Computed example of a mutant assay.
Amino acid sequence: MEKHTVGWREVVSLPELDITGIPAKIDTGARTSSLHAVNIDLFDRDGEEVARFDLDFGAGKAYRHCEAIRVAHRTITSSNGTAEERLIVKTVLSMGAHTFRAEFSLADRSDMVFPMLVGRTALKNRYLVNPGRSFLISNREDAKEEFL
């Protein structure tokens, strides 16, 4: 598979959640990708554990009820060194010409600039990262206003 080069920020989509135009930070320092989520709840559907959560990006911004298959609970250490137990879900991620399943930890990222981080597990064997550039496989104009 040909590896495409991405910048330190790109615009991505989560097709299974019907969300497009999300500005994402490409973060090789993070193992697991992370998605801003609030009101996280687990329930059983046909013997499969499903996570229900809301994507809430603040006053006048995107608000979406979502559901995704729960994969695991993991202890994630944040950039400030704090470890916390987080729910991990798996959904389809679309970045440039690639669409693939990726795992995301659900966390309240309301105090962060980007509602999503794409970590190195999702990047591995697919992309090279140029930390000095932005929007190499996407256009900044594709970022939906409700996420900015």
Rank of each mutant, 00 (worst) to 15 (best):
S79D: 07
L93E: 00
K3F: 06
R120L: 04
V6F: 02
C66Q: 04
D54V: 12
L14M: 10
D108G: 06
I22Q: 08
M112T: 01
A72Y: 00
D41P: 01
E141Y: 04
V6C: 02
R52W: 05
F57L: 12
K90V: 05
W8V: 09
N80C: 04
K144Q: 14
R101K: 10
A51G: 00
L35Q: 11
I88G: 01
E49C: 09
K25E: 08
R126W: 03
D18P: 00
F53P: 01
I137L: 15
L55C: 11
G96C: 10
L42Q: 11
P115M: 09
G96T: 13
I40V: 15
S79W: 03
D142P: 01
F147N: 07
N39G: 08
R45C: 05
F135S: 04
L117E: 02
D46Q: 11
E146S: 14
S110K: 10
I76H: 03
G47R: 09
L93R: 03
K25L: 03
V118M: 02
H65A: 10
T91F: 05
I137C: 10
L35H: 07
G47L: 04
S33D: 12
A143T: 08
K61Y: 03
L128P: 04
S79N: 10
E85L: 14
S138E: 05
D54T: 12
L117R: 00
G96Q: 15
F135M: 09
E16W: 02
W8G: 00
S13A: 15
L35A: 07
F135A: 06
E103F: 07
A51P: 00
A143W: 10
L123V: 11
F100I: 06
M112K: 01
G21M: 01
L136I: 11
L148N: 13
H98W: 05
L117M: 05
V38K: 14
R31G: 07
E146Y: 11
A72N: 15
I137V: 15
S134M: 13
L128E: 07
M116R: 10
K124H: 12
L106C: 03
I76V: 15
R109T: 07
E67P: 00
S94D: 11
I19S: 00
R52M: 06
M116A: 14
L55F: 05
A62K: 14
G58K: 04
V71N: 08
K90I: 02
S138K: 08
V71E: 10
